[in-house]
Design a protein around this nucleic acid. Structure first.
Lengths: 266, 266
DNA sequence: GCCTGTGAACCTTTTCACAGCA
DNA sequence: TGCTGTGAAAAGGTTCACAGGC
């Protein structure tokens, strides 16, 4: 009764190498993998770092720097040089041996890969403290995204103005998603409402959801889902704080751009 | 000049298996790893899931359920059963074969591992939109954490009341961290200020930092750091939206507690 | 019969190390 | 000489499948 049905999809982003149905009784479960190919598949871990590189490169552009080495970019992005090279190699060759990467070309390429060359319409559902903050947060709406709708179930909030938008009722969700071609739904409701909101967003045609509610939300296979859980983050920190990590080991941070030798406190 | 110095620590949480200094020229770089042992090391990935289990188990407690199978817990937490069993096995044996796990005992054990048996004092630095939202966000301060200070560099904000606290000036940071034994610092400042705030928090003795600013921040080895970057999350979603993932593959979500067959929309 | 605990297989990600090109 | 691009090795994480206890 529970033979297949791997979850996962409900946890992050649609997972490519998921199991083909038909689990084999013993070890030899493979059989697919050949034809998936799709030549330029970019690993999930790399995708998650592209935004970091993108931000770092934009800073360089502002400073009118035209080329950058993997080492420099690594420092700005807070990763290591080997990773930068491997990651960028997945995009194709935008570097020149002995020189580095052309900043402008790389910015363009990453923007294209991330789909930032056009704005994606975003709807925020739930306008409590967090929803308000997200709606106003400059830089959340920036660069490749445009908040086009604010939705709340609370009738007393409907009509309220937030920034340039007016809060609308949840009953208008369907129409509004369709009209404004909302691509990404942000859930900032209480936990109890999160799943239902997700269902409605998906039903209305939204293809990606960012969930801030402290609840597990699941979506059908075609839909992307990511979550940001503040309490969880604190708890993870708490774990490491308590288990005062082995002390030794745990390499030092790279040092970023400023010559700060090692950051205060000795 | 850059032989060792792996960054990483600046990116997430203190990383155990980081390189021992003294990188060997060729392959045989090992030499440590033996004595690290520490018998009950819990893998990073498992630590990141403990909060999920914890939340799910608390819900079960509310419903007066006394035992839970890995399968049930998996569904509530949005992961799969094998992972649940593996994860919990790292905590020791809290399950009974043929029966399941004792909810109460498990809650206690996870709370202890995560250090939630006592409240950790939290300071929020930067009270713009996001900082305000975090300060008010119920559930952010809940369960194992207590916000004990709000700090902002803007003199015009100092003295303003937010919930039960009053915003204090950044010059008081040192004293206030020491007095109230702040363990976790939350950075909700503009990107440009993030590194300096982190430095000051560390210098004042804070051991863990949660960074919301869209900037790379680095900290010395002993300090834990996690980041939450809203723009990054959107960009990752944008990538998957654009590359309309292979469609096939990508297993369905588990279905959560309600019998919703597959979530609306078919 | 049922469900945990776990070795082993598998897959992904990271890191190393160096060939190859400007 | 300097830095990218990349095979290969290592580490980490996930999933399978089943032994073993209730």
């Amino acid at each position: 009764m529970h033979e297949r049905r791997y979850d996962r999809a409900g946890t992050c982003v649609p997972r490519l190498p998921a199991q083909a149905p038909g689990p084999r009784p013993t070890t030899p479960r493979r059989a697919r993998s050949a034809a998936i190919s799709e030549a330029r598949r970019i690993p999930e871990a790399t995708v998650a770092r592209l935004p970091l590189y993108y931000r770092a490169l934009l800073e360089m552009t502002d400073q009118a720097l035209s080329t950058v080495s993997s080492e420099q970019l690594a420092e700005l992005a807070g990763v290591n040089a080997a990773k930068v090279r491997k990651d960028l190699s997945h995009l194709g060759s935008y570097g020149t041996r002995g020189v580095g990467y052309a900043v402008a070309a790389l910015v363009d390429e990453i923007a294209r890969e991330l789909g930032l060359t056009h704005d994606s319409p975003v709807a925020i559902v739930g306008l409590g403290n967090l929803g308000h903050a997200l709606a106003n947060y400059h830089g959340f709406g920036a660069r490749g995204f445009r908040i086009v709708a604010l939705v709340d179930a609370d009738a007393s909030k409907v009509g309220e103005r937030v920034g340039e938008l007016t809060i609308e009722g949840i009953d208008d969700l369907d129409a509004l998603v369709a009209d404004r071609e909302v691509a990404i739904g942000v859930i900032a409701t209480p936990a109890a409402a999160a799943q239902e909101v997700a269902d409605r967003l998906v039903a209305a045609g939204v293809g990606s959801i960012l969930n801030f509610a402290p609840a597990v939300v699941t979506v059908p296979s075609g839909v992307s889902l990511r979550k940001v859980d503040l309490a969880t983050e604190l708890q993870i920190l708490s774990f490491y704080q308590q288990h005062r990590m082995p002390a030794a080991l745990g390499a030092d941070a790279p040092g970023l751009r400023d010559p700060r030798p090692r950051a205060g406190v000795t």
